[in-house]
Computed example of a mutant assay.
Amino acid sequence: MNDGPLADVDAIAWHRLHHAYGPATDVPDQLRALRSRDEDRRADALACLSGNVYHQGTRWQASHAVVPFLVALVDDPETPDRAAVVGLLRRIAVGDRRDDALPFDPRQAFAAGDTFDGPEHDELIQRFYAEEELADDEIPVLDAAAVRWAADSYFAAAARLSAITRWVSDPDDQVAAQAAALIAWFEPTDALMAALIAVPEHRARPRASANLALAHAPASDVRIDRRLRELTLSGTATVAVTAAVASAYRDGKALAEQALSILVEASDRDDLEGVPGWDRAPRGFVMLALQRLDLG
Rank of each mutant, 00 (worst) to 15 (best):
E133F: 11
S169V: 08
A93R: 05
A146M: 07
G57M: 06
S50Q: 13
G4L: 02
A158P: 11
L88S: 07
V94N: 00
V94S: 01
A237G: 10
A256W: 11
D271S: 10
N211S: 14
A208Q: 09
L124W: 03
F285S: 11
L196F: 05
A33D: 13
L161W: 00
A266Q: 06
A204W: 00
V286H: 01
V175T: 04
S234T: 15
A157D: 03
D75L: 08
G22T: 04
W14K: 09
T115N: 02
D251G: 05
I12G: 04
R229N: 06
P119N: 06
A180I: 11
L88H: 07
R250S: 10
R229I: 15
D105C: 00
L73Q: 09
L31D: 10
L17T: 13
L124Y: 07
P200E: 04
L46Q: 06
T165H: 10
P282I: 06
E39M: 12
E78I: 15
D172H: 06
D221W: 00
A289F: 06
A33T: 08
P188Y: 07
L295T: 09
G113I: 06
D136P: 03
D114A: 13
P140G: 00
A101E: 14
K253D: 15
V66G: 07
L260V: 05
A156Y: 05
V53P: 02
V239T: 08
F116P: 01
D114T: 15
D143P: 02
D136Q: 09
M1N: 12
V275M: 11
R35H: 01
A163E: 12
P200I: 14
V9G: 05
L134N: 02
L272C: 00
A281W: 09
A181D: 01
I125C: 04
A181V: 12
P188M: 00
R207A: 15
D8I: 09
R82V: 12
R250Y: 07
Y54F: 15
G87T: 13
R41Y: 04
E138K: 03
C48A: 15
G118Y: 12
D105L: 03
A13K: 10
Y249T: 10
A243S: 07
D100G: 05
Q178W: 07
E257C: 05
E132V: 02
A198Y: 04
G252I: 08
D26M: 00
Q108S: 14
G95W: 02
Y21I: 15
D268F: 14
S209Q: 10
S209N: 00
F186Y: 13
A184K: 05
A194E: 08
T115V: 14
L212M: 10
L70W: 01
W60H: 02
R227A: 10
L70H: 10
T232C: 13
Y154P: 06
A254F: 13
F104K: 01
Y154M: 05
A72P: 00
L142D: 05
T189A: 08
V147P: 00
L17I: 11
E201F: 02
T189N: 01
G284V: 13
M287T: 15
D279C: 08
N211L: 06
